[in-house]
Amino acid sequence: MGKDNNEAGDDVNRVVENSALKVARESGEMQQQWSAKLVVLGERKDRAVFAELFSHFAPRLKSYVIRLGLPDAAAEEVVQEAMLSVWRKAHLYRPEKAAASTWIFTLARNLCIDRMRKDRYPMCELPEEEPDPSERHAGTDSLVADRISAALSRLPEAQAQVVYLSFYEGRSHSEISERLGVPLGSVKSRMRLAFDKLRELWGDEA
């Protein structure tokens, strides 16, 4: 297994760390602001609030969808479809379960895959009214959301790479292994290490 430690010097690390934390603190407030707007949208179908959410999220979703491999025109359609789901399903959004960006990410991810595979992405659907019994950490997600981007930017290069290739390009383990020229086992261990670090943010011991 390859060495996954960050080999950059300590000084560099500290600079990166400080700026990442600053960004995270700012984005943390933004996060909560967007989650609050999404709640308002769910409560009273406010078109102005929707327009704000659209202006913020649509251009980001478009980048995401294009990275996954859809051409510009199709990407625009998927983004529109995703934002339409946001409008229609906002009343189902629970801020204690996920940050607004996470919720919107999952909507777009599913629509993208449905379109690219012409088959729906298999999801475990729990009845909507029923609270998910797995929500042990209910109430912490919006607090954690801001720290995740900081943690992401502090991941060693090798781990960040596999996370980006998975989430931004939808690459499977074997595709990543081929692309980076490392064994499948190393790809998986890098993913585990990255996930462990990020899970610590929930106060979970790995």
């Binding site: 607004a100 960006s101 996470t102 996370v163 989430f167």
Partner: peptide, 10 residues
Amino acid sequence: ALGGALLDTV
């Protein structure tokens, strides 16, 4: 939530 964080930074 990782997907959400990436969406925030893209």
